[in-house]
């Protein structure tokens, strides 16, 4: 009934994080680190399940790196 598409919201969230970390020397690492530190694994999984549609390329790369560095994918 709320009409909230929570996945779309996650897409928006990660893209917003990307926009705010673009000036980091390693934006992909910064985004990955941020998501790792503050997102629950289920949110990461939900986003992964959604695929790359609408995701900023940096976000896609960050999600990828997150899987490698932190084992979120294994979750």
């Amino acid at each position: 009934m709320s009409g909230v598409d929570t996945t779309a919201k996650l897409v928006r969230m990660i893209n917003q994080i990307v926009r705010n970390l673009l000036h980091d020397k390693d934006p992909v690492g910064a985004v990955a680190g941020h998501v790792h530190a503050f997102w629950s694994p289920r949110m990461v999984q939900q986003l992964r399940a959604h695929g790359s549609d609408g995701l900023d390329p940096v976000a896609i790369a960050a999600l990828e790196r997150l899987g490698q560095d932190h084992g979120h994918a294994a979750g």
Partner: peptide, 18 residues
């Protein structure tokens, strides 16, 4: 060892039935 949900995420998860 993994972060939990924040308030808005809890509410989102609730609407998702989780």
């Amino acid at each position: 060892p993994e972060p939990g949900l924040r308030i808005p995420n809890m509410l989102d998860a609730a609407t998702d039935g989780l």
